[in-house]
């Protein structure tokens, strides 16, 4: 059988499908008939969304073991890829490693963190931004199966022209196989972090991010105010995290969360290379800083030289007045 199926690994199917998963489905459809796979049984809401996005073939990877271990996840996925030309997954750290393990198992080519996905002469192609956002690289995968992690905001999610009636089937990985695939690694504990202010979108996938740095002097109130007026996620510099002003999960940077929103607003952020490497690929960059010489002004589209403690609340008020 020729490889023609476009497989999407969905990260969260227990509730309603969220933006990044819908984006993956939108991309996948352009590459072949879509098969959606997940490590949980999909909820009714998730199934309804899959129908709207034209997905008929849904697989629940039923693992008798720990799917948070890279080896186990890869072993569970391998059997659903035998007729696939591409596997698309969100650009999370866990997914990158699972796809790497699959590349080793299957001999497939790997593209990490594509910002756009398409085709070139019949091969799956991915476009990404590297070297701290300073270079654009277009690559194709030359193997029969292509494995890609795809950045959030790669496309805008669009339902299919023709809806489908999703049918769920289970593909199991038994305890012995899961144990062998773990390769000696044991997950001792896993603690999900509380998402305080859960009304805000997750940082890694937000289309708008407002970030604060040392210039907040520890008061993230104005940053939160503007973020909420925009429906944005909140980010921070390593400095602000190290000071304990905000949670570690908010850290934008090369070793924190790498973001590519449509709009990034940095307040009280000088623009150290470490931070820039994590946000420089954003579409539009706005900076507010009292120092006219700060390096972030060199890479932004719009700069306000001023005190964020007054500029941000004024912007938030102006936005609310527009929508009121």
């Amino acid at each position: 059988m020729t490889r023609h199926i476009s497989v999407v690994l969905l990260d969260d199917v227990t509730g309603a499908l969220r933006g990044p998963d819908l984006e993956l489905l939108t991309v996948a459809r352009t590459l072949g008939p879509v098969r959606a796979v997940a490590f949980e049984a999909p909820s009714a809401d998730a199934l309804a969304a899959l129908g709207t996005y034209g997905v008929a073939d849904v697989v629940h990877l039923d693992v008798d073991g720990e799917p948070h271990l890279t080896g186990v996840a890869a072993a569970a996925l391998a059997p659903v890829l035998t007729d696939a030309r591409v596997l698309l997954a969100r650009a999370t750290f866990a997914n990158k490693e699972v796809l790497a393990r699959l590349a080793h198992l299957t001999g497939a080519g790997l593209l990490i963190d594509a910002a756009r996905v398409g085709e070139h002469d019949g091969l799956v192609a991915g476009w990404k931004r590297v070297f701290a956002g300073s270079w654009d690289v277009d690559s194709v995968v030359t193997t029969e199966l292509a494995l890609l992690t795809v950045r959030p905001n790669a496309v805008r999610p669009v339902p299919a022209d023709a809806p489908a009636d999703p049918v769920v089937r289970a593909v199991a990985l038994d305890a012995a196989a899961a144990e062998a695939a773990a390769g000696g690694v044991r997950l001792v504990s896993r603690t999900l972090h509380e998402t305080s202010g859960s009304a805000r979108p997750p940082l890694a996938e937000a289309s708008v991010v407002v970030a604060g740095g040392r210039g907040t002097l520890g008061d993230f109130g104005p940053v939160e105010d503007l973020a909420d007026a925009l429906g944005a996620a909140i980010g921070a510099t390593r400095d602000a995290v190290d000071e304990g002003w905000i949670d570690h999960d908010a850290q934008v940077g090369q070793t924190g969360v790498t973001i590519t929103p449509h709009l990034y607003i940095g307040a009280g952020i000088s623009g150290a290379p470490h931070h820039r490497g994590g946000m420089q690929a954003s579409e539009v960059i706005v900076a507010v800083n009292s120092d006219p010489e700060c390096p972030i002004f060199e890479i932004c589209d719009f700069a306000v030289v001023g005190d964020l403690a007054t500029v941000l609340p004024q912007a938030a008020a102006a936005l609310r007045a527009r929508t009121a």
Binding site: F93, V185, L187, V188, S189, R190, T191, H193, T195, P202
Partner: peptide
Amino acid sequence: DGATEVLEA
């Protein structure tokens, strides 16, 4: 990815 994990091998 928003979780703290302890792993052993």
